[in-house]
Design a protein around this nucleic acid. Sequence first.
DNA 1: GCATTGACTTCCAGATAGTGGAATGCGACG
DNA 2: CGTCGCATTCCACTATCTGGAAGTCAATGC
Lengths: 247, 247
Amino acid sequence: MVAADTPPGTLGTVRNAALLLDLLSEGPAHHQLTDLAQASRLSLPTVHRLLRSLMVAGLVEQDTRSSRYSLGPDLVRLSERYLARMPLLQVLGPYLVELRNRTTATVGVALLVAVDVVYVERIDGADVGGIFRRTHRSLPAHATAAGRVLLGRAGPGAWKQHEANGWPLDAADCQAWGEAGHLAAPLDELDGSVEVAVPILDALGRASAALVATGAPPAFTQARLVADVVPHLARIAERVSGTVGHA
Amino acid sequence: MVAADTPPGTLGTVRNAALLLDLLSEGPAHHQLTDLAQASRLSLPTVHRLLRSLMVAGLVEQDTRSSRYSLGPDLVRLSERYLARMPLLQVLGPYLVELRNRTTATVGVALLVAVDVVYVERIDGADVGGIFRRTHRSLPAHATAAGRVLLGRAGPGAWKQHEANGWPLDAADCQAWGEAGHLAAPLDELDGSVEVAVPILDALGRASAALVATGAPPAFTQARLVADVVPHLARIAERVSGTVGHA
DNA sequence: GCATTGACTTCCAGATAGTGGAATGCGACG
DNA sequence: CGTCGCATTCCACTATCTGGAAGTCAATGC
């Protein structure tokens, strides 16, 4: 057992369980026990017992036909409970509805979680186009306007972590992202949609979330989103900044 | 340590960690360590080490000001990874876009997780009204049309579990829910909105998810949703039934 | 200003639960 | 029907997990 990897005051068994959840979150939907043992450098019986324990908790499930393991449904419930307790999302709700009704753009909220940008709220605009987009998407942070807004303000430590995950970054870009009041970036080349984002700062001046708006031609171009929607995003961000945040 | 509570072939330490996640998912956003120790019947140092371990994994976070503990952001990432790997949600995407564009109602997908119905996808209708509604909501299953559709087909074991969580159920109601091709229920009295739901059956005839549509007056009444939208939901459910499911 | 209190965190000794090698079970395949 | 690959169980050992005790720290009251 790799005791050296366990920070003092923590438990190796919990670290191992969390490691398996991480491994299950990458790659294919279902993983063989033997592959998980290899990737985690734990023995087969150990991985078996860990997975069984996570199954009892609903955090992992086992496909009855292939015997392979995957993440489990209780993660959805716990995630929802986490988001339901974020004061910022509750405060933002009415603003999002108002903004969507006023501009008819798609609006939402994104968070930085590790090296990913995760979209945690969305109200669709009048025109949703023809492309399905999941309500909770997760992408490497550098790939979207919201991600860049958050990553830029997360500081060099986060930039290093991002690069450690295989995404090279330009420090000057990151610096610029962190100083911009808003950012815009293409969202989907198929329909020419664009995303703009504005940071919401907490009491310590860090970006706790990003306010997001997206739209596609002919109703929205990048210029129109910047001119007509960004000022509203900035106003809302100013309004809620520093009032609530999560630790 | 309560070894009797640990099923054979599983690990008490992982059960304890999962227990703390469950406790953190109920009640207030932030919990005191002493309260968690009391509720879990574990000692203070044990709870402390478990929470520290979960923090390292990002599954728990500690408020720096109050020292209290709460669920952590990595749950959002893992949940998203779980949902991203559900073949059903990928298959349904184009249908949801088409249905939304054709009917202009709000459409989505819901799952039954333990005793809760969780809404995991949503495309907003043309008219989103004035009330903000979170994209991932979780409610006791009996409280919504989608929840009833799923709970009814989950069988008496699930009904008992639901009641064990404090929600009395009428077996005849559950029976009827399980046999209905669709269900309708009020969603929000403030704007008179209504939800209709249709089950999606897997290869074994169980309800793996519910297709959902909602709307509010004046564009939508319950009668109109039933007459104009439910047939589309049923057609889509029929189309995807039995082709994909999750174990 | 200092003692007290409540809550979090660390130390340490003991015991048991967690670990991994070996063996077993099971379904697919040739 | 034997072989193979993979999941699961058995068993002995020890390293880790546990909880009592002690330490730390910030808030509170006199």
